[in-house]
Design a binder for these strands. Structure first.
Length: 154
DNA sequence: GCCAACGTTGGC
DNA sequence: GCCAACGTTGGC
């Protein structure tokens, strides 16, 4: 069992969105970075813990908890001509982009980027590293625990 | 809107 | 395989 932090723009898919979806589950479409894709394709397992992070918004930070709900499969948006995520180099026979389903578990109080940065125990979080842009990053058990503590969850 | 940092592309 | 040019991310 592993832990992950997954960024989503709340204007696209927020934690509220995800919770309101059928089975509280959304397909994690639109990842177009190989490293992030490889995490989903090669390392994610059903049941892995996910920190649901809101990015590119007024208050960036961790907004909820979720879990990986499927193994990887081709991102359908890569084949949709009208999609912003269309990839002309991808074909159903030769898909380039994979995704997993993510099931939202609960909304949390907003653990802001500022608050994350202020905690020395969380300094190792990958998203806090200089220049880090990856939309999906692994989270260590210690980091996960630290965040649960801050959220006063188990 | 700015811009630092990083990723991707494509000519050579 | 190098690397300059370009595109993207994402906080501010």
């Amino acid at each position: 069992m592993q832990y992950w932090l997954m960024k989503s723009e709340p204007a696209e898919v927020s934690i509220d969105h995800a919770l309101a979806a059928k089975d509280s589950t959304v397909a994690w479409t639109g990842v177009r970075n190989y490293q992030a894709r490889n995490f989903m394709r090669d390392q994610m397992r059903i049941g892995d813990g996910v920190l649901f992070y809101h990015s590119s918004c007024a208050e960036p930070g961790i907004a909820g908890l979720a879990e990986v709900a499927s193994t990887a499969y081709p991102d359908p948006t890569q084949f949709e001509r009208d999609s912003h995520y269309f990839d002309p180099k991808a074909s159903p026979e030769n898909p380039r982009w994979m995704l997993v389903d993510v099931r939202a578990r609960r909304k949390t109080r907003l653990l802001s980027l500022t608050e994350l940065r202020a905690d020395p125990a969380l300094a190792s979080l990958q998203i806090l590293q200089r220049g880090s842009r990856l939309s999906i990053t692994p989270v260590t058990p210690d980091e996960w625990q630290g965040i649960m503590q801050k959220l006063e969850l188990k």
